[in-house]
Simulated scan of single mutants.
Amino acid sequence: MNPPSSPAEERPHPHRVSDLIPRKTLETCLARIETHRRLLETIRRLLPPPLAHHCRECVAGDGTLVLYAESAAWASQLRFYLPRIIEELAQEGHGQFRRGKVRTLSLAMEAPRAAPRRPAPHRPLPATIAAIDAAARASEGDIGTALARLCSTLRRLPR
């Protein structure tokens, strides 16, 4: 009689990438990734420093160069530099692009960033709380109720 198998034994072992993709195909993909990385690095070098950081990606193919900016504001600035970039890429031997486009990179496609930390709420000055309390007492209906709740919440905040 065999002992019961553990859950780890039941799971198939993960495969190596080289077992799933032929080596020649993998080498071709890695070479294209490296070419793409170098092209993006060159494009960023040709841009002014503040703008270079906001050029997030590039795609080259069929004589067209597409640059991706992180927002519409940065995209409009990239459009201004695009003709010069195409010209300088040709001079440096990075291909002949007949035309260029600039697109805005969707936030969903971009790598997630840590959300900025929100500052802890602080208690307003006592005079501010007193003014809100006075307004609550002077107001009727929903406004007075809402101001009274706000005043109560502000009193509970840490100093």
Rank of each mutant, 00 (worst) to 15 (best):
residue 46 L to F: 01
residue 48 P to D: 06
residue 53 H to G: 07
residue 53 H to S: 13
residue 55 C to D: 04
residue 55 C to N: 07
residue 56 R to W: 08
residue 57 E to Y: 11
residue 57 E to Q: 14
residue 57 E to S: 09
residue 57 E to M: 12
residue 59 V to R: 12
residue 60 A to C: 05
residue 61 G to D: 01
residue 61 G to I: 00
residue 62 D to N: 06
residue 68 Y to R: 15
residue 68 Y to I: 03
residue 70 E to N: 13
residue 70 E to D: 06
residue 71 S to D: 06
residue 71 S to A: 06
residue 71 S to Y: 01
residue 72 A to S: 13
residue 72 A to E: 13
residue 73 A to M: 03
residue 75 A to Q: 05
residue 76 S to R: 13
residue 76 S to D: 14
residue 77 Q to I: 00
residue 77 Q to W: 04
residue 79 R to M: 09
residue 80 F to N: 14
residue 82 L to H: 12
residue 83 P to Q: 10
residue 83 P to H: 15
residue 87 E to L: 14
residue 89 L to A: 05
residue 89 L to V: 06
residue 89 L to G: 02
residue 90 A to N: 15
residue 93 G to L: 11
residue 93 G to C: 13
residue 95 G to E: 04
residue 98 R to M: 15
residue 99 R to N: 13
residue 99 R to V: 01
residue 99 R to K: 13
residue 100 G to Y: 00
residue 103 R to P: 05
residue 103 R to C: 04
residue 104 T to P: 14
residue 106 S to R: 10
residue 107 L to E: 14
residue 110 E to S: 11
residue 111 A to T: 15
residue 112 P to K: 09
residue 113 R to I: 06
residue 113 R to N: 10
residue 114 A to L: 14
residue 117 R to L: 12
residue 118 R to T: 10
residue 118 R to S: 06
residue 121 P to D: 00
residue 122 H to L: 11
residue 123 R to E: 02
residue 123 R to A: 10
residue 124 P to K: 06
residue 125 L to A: 07
residue 125 L to H: 08
residue 127 A to L: 10
residue 127 A to R: 11
residue 127 A to I: 07
